[in-house]
Each structure stands twice: as structure tokens, then as C-alpha cells.
Design a protein around this nucleic acid. Structure first.
Lengths: 339, 339
DNA sequence: CCTGGCACTCGCTGGGTCGGAGTGCCAAGG
DNA sequence: CCTTGGCACTCCGACCCAGCGAGTGCCAGG
């Protein structure tokens, strides 16, 4: 069955090219992999694969290199996400279990991912949108200064400083605290937002202090920064790119600063598949044509409410990266479940 | 006065080399700077400067390049930190004034510094050690689950989740809250730490809930991570290094991941001078021999309690970098003063 | 002490050669 | 019909070599 062998040849090409970073020729291929056929046969297959657009040669009379389309086929049909070894699982679990709070979980995840895959890792902070209000605290710093602290179910804490026009005594603060907590506690952000807005939106006059505190809360909740926050790590791995500095490292280095771009990369396909792979040109960013993204959603329960992943050269170890990303996403989800 | 002219020659060499990134020869020097002497004269001066170790030639019959010692002399004696332009000051002020909390201040500072200097920027989060306890909040998430929130004067918020062996009612929680706040509020971290420790250190039996809460607080306060936290930004500027990828970019990229190393770089000379410059080899890290650090302390009041700065190639615009670092440090200090 | 002149050094550039890896094609064999 | 060995061809990359030019060091004269 020659169709099957052709796919085996493609797989071999991808694996060899990923390993050696050099165009792979027919002779080396039959030697390194036990294909059981002659180089000439492989050459025929390679010609066919090239016709179909799965591989290409950098120049006449050089070996073959996988195209983006070739990687795509490899990822979709020629590989299964290999499970992590027992030791790796333990390492992941022990590192993540030591986290003390949400920020720490995110930081550790980034480090973990970048070390496991030896690529640049990206972890999005859990978005506010699906979390609920756990508690609102008002602290009087001075008679006319109030610290408003918003604690969310994801463990995120937002704070705002409020200057009041007139002084408030403890009882008034307690009343206000009780009021906002009664209205907002346990609600999803959007609901809490609406409820608080309604509180001051009624016709009757509203105490200026209430107004100020509610404003601060609305500001903290609608804070888009939190939705867009991500953490990047492992940039040192870019140093291993070796060649192709201009074509790959430079644009990526620039993209890493643009968190909005990274979010788009991570979030391109939020639905369906548990793990998504974007390869090379498959995306709106021409400058990132030679980089790939492996990402997965994570979050407590079934619903993924934030994403994490890695970014690397198209020439990367996809099975390994996918396994690492999936494993870390699972463990982080579990941690969040427990919290 | 030939001594003076020699220094002028050194200054001209540094400036030209920084601008062109190429060894500078005697002829180009007299043309680009109005030195008023002939190339031959400059050559004599250059020979003398080379004897003294301030400049060197990459190979015979090439132009001269400043040595670390030459940069040092340049920074110490040949340059004054030029004040920022009015427009730049306004830009700094307006960008930093928009910050909503401490994290935001740090993030904006990094962005600002990296944009102003076009180098990699590093900002250390204010250390806990000199901040005071503003408020401690206890939130009952469930009868046996308590969220402990520690709010510090610097605006930092630490939180810990505490699982209690037995349930606590609201009154008990209120009592406990009042107790820890009475003991710790307004105290410097170290004092609060001691006071809290004393609370459970006495001979008499202590309620397990109190013990658990105090443990969580002590943990949060002694948290060394906070002392070591820094934010890095502007790594994309590394792409401009162009040449010397292996010698400069790679080790620096690796160092950027090692926050401990960065802290050492930033903190090397905490005292004395308002702004410190480490040039090339002047430090324990051989791999960073071709990078320089410009850093300054910042903090409310007179005392600097954290540092910020930039990292770049030894071949950098020192006057500009120093001006930017100093300006940002001042503005951040002012912001913290107000908060 | 500065300056013009002069011989010298040495890295960089461009052209030309050569070897080797790899290909495509073809004819023969299973 | 697929596979295989053979063979001519292509083309990259390494190597060598010469010429150029920027820059230097030194010296003698002002």
C-alpha cells in the first residue's frame, strides 16, 4: 500500500527535520528509519508529496523540508499526543501543588511549560468575566479615605482607593459594606455589575459616598486589563533558534511584548478541540509565518475560561509540546477546582 | 592643553562609536567633530589613550573602540545627565498618573523605561520590608474556610486561604479580626511579624483558628517571593542588537529569566549615588561582560526602597539612559508619595 | 607640540574552482 | 504496476586568492 508508505515518509521527514534542522534527503531517510525500501522509491514518494504540497525543497538538489501543510497533516493524522512519563507527571504535580495563590499558579505554570517544552510559554490569567464576587471589603484608612477591596472567586483581588467628600463613621461604613455585599456577593461579574449600577441608577438621591464606592467597584470589575493579562516566560529559549534570527526570533520577540497579539494567538479557536495547534501562516500575522502555537483552555469544571500554551518555530516537536500543554492545562484546572 | 583635548577625543570616540557601532578612525573623527586639529594629532592622542587602556583596536589598522575603562571615564567625568525635554516630562507624568494601583505603576514604569531608552527595562516591586500593615481582613467563604487578606501600605495585597478544623461563627471571626488588626495595624512588617508571633507564642493554649490565621499571616508577610519580584519589559529591543547575537543577546536573554541575577545587577550599589552605572565586566557575571546596567533607587520619601533600571549593551547611550532612568525613578517616587 | 607625508598592515569583498549531497529520470526486474 | 539500481545533472557551500581601502605608526619639518 503505497499511500500508507507515503505518509510514513512524511512522518519520517518531519521527525528528522525537527531533530536535525536540516533538509532531509532520501538516502539518510531510509538509513535512519527502517523503511525497508530503496532510496529511489522514497524519491518517488517524495516527488508525489511535493506535488501535493506537503514538502518542498529549499533549492534544487537539496533535501526536503516540510511545508506548513505538511506539518498540519502530521499533527492531525500522523501523531497521537503521547502521555507524559510518570516522572514528568510527578514533577508537574509537585511544582504546581506548592503554589500559594492564583498569581503563583500562573507563574509556576509558565515556568513549567517553558521548561518542559523548551519553548516560550504563555499563560493567560483567568478572566474576570466568569468569576463571581466572593466578598467586598471597605477599609477606612482615614476619615475621608476608603480602600475598596474586591475579592473574586478566582482568587483575584482588585483594590481601589476612594477619596470621600465628607467623613464617614464606622457605622455608616458597615452599612455601606453590608449593602454592596448583599447586592453583589455570589453574583457573576456581569450580574454584580448590573446590580451595583442599579443601586445608584435609581431616581432618588444617592449618598455621595455610596456613589463613589460603587463607581470604584464598577471600575474594578469592568477592568479590561484583567481580561487581557497574560504572563510570558522562557524567552531564553529563543536563543536556541540559532539560525533564522531575523525571520523568526525578531518578530516573535516583538510579538511577545504585544500582549494583545498573544491573546489573539492563544484564543483563536476557543471551542471544540481540547488542544489547538496553529501552524505557521495559519493566522493573520504574516510576521509570525514561521512560528507555531500550541494552546489549550483551562479552568475549573468543564468550562475553559482561560488559555495557556507555547509558541515556537514551525519546526518544533509537536507531539511533545502538545503533551506538555495538555498535561499542564489539566493540572492547573484541577488546582483551580480545589481552590 | 593637550590633556583636555585627549578627553575630548575620548568623548568623541565614545559618541561616534555609540552612534555608528563601528570602530572610529582619526580622520572621520576630526571631520564629524570640530576638533580643530589634524588627524595626525588625533592619532597621537589615540595612541596615548590606548596606552592608558581607555580605547583599543579590534585588530591592527582598524579604528578604535572604547574599552570598559573608557566608558567608565566617559560616564564619570565626560558627561552630565542631561535633563529630559519638557515634552518627555509631560509624557512620563501623564502615563504614570493614569495608573490605578501599585501593579499598574510598576507595569507602566517598565513600558515607559523601555520605550524611552529603547533598551530592556527592569523594575523591582517595592519590597515588603519597609511597608506597614494597613489592614487585615478575614472573609468567611464557608463555615470552615477563611480567606485571610493582608493589605500593606504600599498597596500590595497578599491573600491566603485557611482551612479550619472547626467552624467559626461571625462573632468569633469579628473578634479574631479585631485582635489581629489591633496587634498589627500600622506596624512595619517586622514589628507586625513579631507581634503576631507573640500572640501565639505565649504559654497558654491558643484557639486553633487563631493559630491557623496567624500562621497564614506570618507566611504572607515573610514571603520572600515578594522581595524578589521584578518585572522585565522591552525584550524586543534586544532584536536591535543586530550583530553580536551570541556574545550579547543570548546570555542576556538567559539572565532575564533569572530574576535573582537581575536583582543582583540592580542592587549592586544601593547606597550613595542616586544613579548607578555598571559597565561591562564590572560585576561577577562573566557572561554579561558586554552589557551595562543603569539603575536608580526609588521610593516614597527620601529612602529608596526598591530599584529600577535598564540593561543594554556596553555600547549604549549613557547620558540618555541615565536621564531616563533618573526621571522615571523620580516620578514613580512622587506617585508613591501621594498614594 | 602640531602637521603633512609615507610606507605598512590587515580585514573585507568578489570572483573562480571544486567537491559532495541530492535529485530526476530511465530502463530493467519482480 | 510498483520497485530498484544506475547515471547525468544541479547547485550550494567551502576554499583560495588577489586587490582595495581604511587606518595606523613613524618621521622630519615647522
Amino acid at each position: 500500500m503505497q499511500e500508507e508508505r507515503r505518509l510514513a515518509v512524511l512522518r519520517a521527514i518531519v521527525e528528522d527535520y525537527v531533530a536535525t534542522e536540516e533538509p532531509v534527503g532520501s538516502k539518510a531517510l531510509v538509513e535512519r528509519h527502517g523503511l525497508g525500501v530503496s532510496p529511489a522509491t522514497v524519491r518517488n514518494d517524495m516527488a508525489a508529496l511535493e506535488d501535493e504540497g506537503y514538502i518542498t525543497q529549499p533549492h534544487t538538489s537539496a533535501g526536503r523540508v516540510p511545508t506548513d501543510k505538511g506539518y498540519r497533516l502530521f499533527v492531525d493524522r500522523l501523531t497521537t499526543v503521547k502521555p507524559m512519563s510518570q516522572a514528568e507527571r510527578r514533577a508537574i504535580a509537585s511544582l504546581l501543588d506548592g503554589a500559594v495563590d492564583l498569581d503563583d499558579v500562573v507563574q509556576r505554570s509558565v515556568r513549567l511549560l517553558s521548561q518542559l517544552t523548551r519553548q516560550v510559554a504563555i499563560v493567560q490569567y483567568p478572566t474576570l468575566s466568569r468569576s463571581t464576587v466572593r466578598h467586598i471589603e471597605l477599609v477606612a484608612l482615614a476619615p475621608s479615605r476608603l480602600l475598596v477591596v474586591l475579592i473574586l472567586s478566582t482568587g483575584r483581588v482588585e483594590q481601589r482607593l476612594v477619596e470621600l467628600a465628607d467623613d464617614l463613621d464606622d457605622a455608616a461604613i458597615a452599612d455601606l459594606r453590608a449593602l454592596v455585599n448583599r447586592v453583589a456577593n455570589g453574583e457573576v461579574i456581569a450580574e454584580a455589575n448590573a446590580a451595583l449600577a442599579a443601586l445608584v441608577g435609581t431616581d432618588g438621591p444617592v449618598a455621595p459616598a455610596t456613589q463613589a464606592v460603587v463607581d470604584a467597584l464598577l471600575d474594578a470589575m469592568s477592568d479590561h486589563r484583567s481580561d487581557e493579562r497574560i504572563l510570558v516566560g522562557g524567552a531564553a529559549n529563543l536563543a536556541r533558534y540559532g539560525d533564522s534570527f531575523d525571520s523568526a526570533v525578531r518578530p516573535l520577540l516583538e510579538a511577545l511584548e504585544e500582549h494583545v497579539v498573544l491573546l489573539k494567538l492563544l484564543g483563536e479557536a476557543t471551542t471544540g478541540e481540547p488542544i489547538t495547534v496553529r501552524i505557521g501562516h495559519e493566522g493573520p500575522y504574516q510576521q509570525l509565518a514561521s512560528t507555531s502555537v500550541v494552546a489549550a483552555g483551562y479552568g475549573p469544571g468543564e468550562e475553559a475560561f482561560a488559555r495557556l500554551g507555547i509558541v515556537g518555530p514551525t519546526r518544533m516537536d509537536y507531539p511533545g509540546s502538545m503533551a506538555a500543554v495538555r498535561a499542564v492545562a489539566r493540572y492547573v484546572s484541577r488546582i483551580l477546582d480545589e481552590a
